[in-house]
């Protein structure tokens, strides 16, 4: 555990420098010119967005980033190459008769205007794969703990068992009711997938997986599919003919109910995405305050703001830790509630 904390601290400090490096280059240019306020938005956007390489520190030619495989589907061909071949957007990659270039937003374009499908292992995908490996490692070892002996759980097993049972009994069983068994694997996996990715996202320098709308979209689509296919007669009956509603209101109520089918998972998607991304933006903004102060008030200003900023970051960091658990809980809880509504029987 201590090693883990130390690791977090290390990476945290590291990411601090990442931003510093980003901001230094314009600042040195600005020393001769009129002081221009530091604009944190590009940096923040860079940190919370997906990318084709895993940028760790440095800027321009000094940048240190881990290249990731680019996988493109264009015109019936699948082209695979490392993202480092773009040389930060300066080079064009040629595969067969197709030429690929990358723009400043990280989008890849084909030279002759072919439409391409980009299924690269991006930073988020890589981070997600690491989280998945971690999850498999953790839970396989926990499962092995049960097969080995019948003794009381200990270590990781003792830590995770109450969590697993809490999710199973207090979230899944509580909200779905007697038919909950079928949904246990999906919801347990959702909970731990979101939780681990939330926590991994808090490691500085890491990717913002659960704060990416594509990831939350997929998760909520799974909930939507499960809700829709498990909907019973009563569930659909309530949508097509809401009980206790006067006939005159039907033309309004029925569309609302139908829209409701989609707004529920949509809210799930937005909630997780917005919470995690907002947390990242707040932390990055607070750190950026130091550089804004530096650009407007010089080094003295930066030194004055830094302690306050770091304290606030620490505070928000603690809250984000809580949010990481909370959002995993809420996502699972609401998914269970929606499925529960779909399978509920008449009382």
């Amino acid at each position: 555990m201590r090693v883990f904390i130390r690791l977090i601290m290390c990476v945290f400090v590291l990411s601090f420098f990442t931003i510093k490096a980003h901001s230094f280059s314009p600042n040195t240019e600005q020393t001769n010119q009129q002081q221009e306020a530091y604009d944190p938005v590009p940096n923040i956007m860079h940190h919370i967005s997906d990318a084709h390489q895993w940028h760790l520190w440095g800027e321009g030619d000094n940048a240190f980033s881990i290249p990731l495989p680019v996988i493109l589907y264009a015109d019936g061909n699948i082209d695979v190459f490392m993202s480092s071949k773009f040389h930060h957007g300066e080079s064009i990659v040629t595969k067969g008769n197709r030429t690929y270039s990358i723009d400043s937003h990280g989008h890849i374009h084909e030279g002759s205007g072919l439409s391409i499908i980009d299924i690269s292992i991006t930073k988020n995908v890589a981070s997600m794969l690491i989280s998945v490996l971690l999850l498999l490692l953790i839970f396989f070892s926990v499962a092995r703990g049960y097969s080995k002996n019948n003794k009381a759980p200990k270590g990781l097993q003792a830590f995770l068992e109450p969590l697993i049972l809490f999710v199973k009994d207090d979230i899944i069983k509580e909200n779905i009711g007697p038919k909950y068994q079928k949904y246990v694997p999906f919801l347990l996996t959702v909970f731990f997938f979101v939780l681990v990715n939330n926590l991994m996202g808090m490691l500085p320098g890491s990717a913002n997986v659960t704060g990416n709308i594509a990831v939350t979209l997929v998760l909520s689509v799974f909930t939507f599919i499960l809700t829709t296919i498990s909907g019973n007669k009563k569930y659909w009956g309530h949508i097509i003919k809401p009980p206790g509603v006067p006939l005159a209101l039907m033309p309004i109520m029925v569309p609302i109910e139908i829209i409701g089918i989609f707004t529920k998972p949509f809210a799930l998607m937005i909630r997780l995405f917005a919470n995690i991304t907002a947390g990242h933006i707040i932390i990055l903004s607070l750190i950026s305050l130091i550089f804004i102060a530096q650009s407007t008030m010089g080094n003295a200003g930066a030194w004055a703001v830094a302690p306050v900023s770091v304290l606030f970051v620490l505070f928000i960091y603690c809250i984000e830790l809580l949010v990481a658990f909370l959002q995993a809980y809420i996502f699972t809880l609401l998914s269970a509630v929606f499925i529960g509504l779909a399978v509920a029987e008449d009382h």
Binding site: S49, I117, D118, T122, M128, N212, I213, A214
Partner: peptide, 12 residues
Amino acid sequence: LVTPAIGLIFWT
């Protein structure tokens, strides 16, 4: 930020 990327959807 709010435009889901097809690749990430696929991999997720």
